[in-house]
Amino acid sequence: MFEARLAQGSIFAKVIEGLRELVTEATWECSGNGITLQAMDSSHVALVSLVLRSDGFETYRCDRNMSLGISLTSMSKVLKMMGKDDTLTIRVNDDSDAIVLSMESQNQEEFAEYELRLMDLDSEHLGIPDTDYSCVVKMPSTKFSRICRDMAILGDSVTICSTKDGVKFGAKGDVGQGSIRLNQSTNVDKEEDAVSIELREAVALTFAVRYLNMFCKAAPLSNQVNLSMSEDTPLMCEFKVGDMGHIRFYLAPKIED
């Protein structure tokens, strides 16, 4: 049996909203350590890797490792029925072909239960080595979302140039061109508002902005986003999920033909 309970069910709903535009279905790997998921988009340009550690749940029980094929589209629809302060329990009974989502209102007066059929999915797993990136930019996730949205107006691609002083996002297309430069924050009252840059080497990489905008669907999970970059290496775009884990998106760069 698998059973995991989250007092703040809305966190789980935000995780699903963060994933479901990039991947519509995925296999959840459940073990004693927690829940992990790795999935690529259909064109194999971007990948998402999710970790939710067991100690982040109020209660967590996983008697044996399970691979659960789940439609994220359907799960998202079910989770929309959850109240904003509801507690969420996810359960898979032994020998069952369904996942059960139970939602309980804070005053414990309302209790809803939905079942979603599990799917048989082919999953391809990519090994992603630990990487010492040349540059890690940390910035407010709302600011990153706004920049990606704005860059998409100008063109299909965005070039991210990072130096020790700042980071520049630039795009050009048929309508024209533009760029936004953010300087490293010198002093900020709140850490979540800061832009900080750890840099060993300056980098300039070009990415399809459409994917970056999909990654930004996960921005409501976290005040800050980390962008890790090295030349000729996929971008790693990370949002923390509270203290319990993270969503990491990987995106292959574009190269000059």
């Binding site: 340009v45 797993h125 990519l126 090994g127 080595p129 070009t206 990987y250 292959a252 574009k254 190269i255």
Partner: peptide
């Protein structure tokens, strides 16, 4: 002209 790469150029299956 820019060309989009795929992740399999960087990471291996398995």
């Amino acid at each position: 002209k820019q060309q989009q790469q795929t992740l399999s150029s960087f990471y291996h299956y398995g």
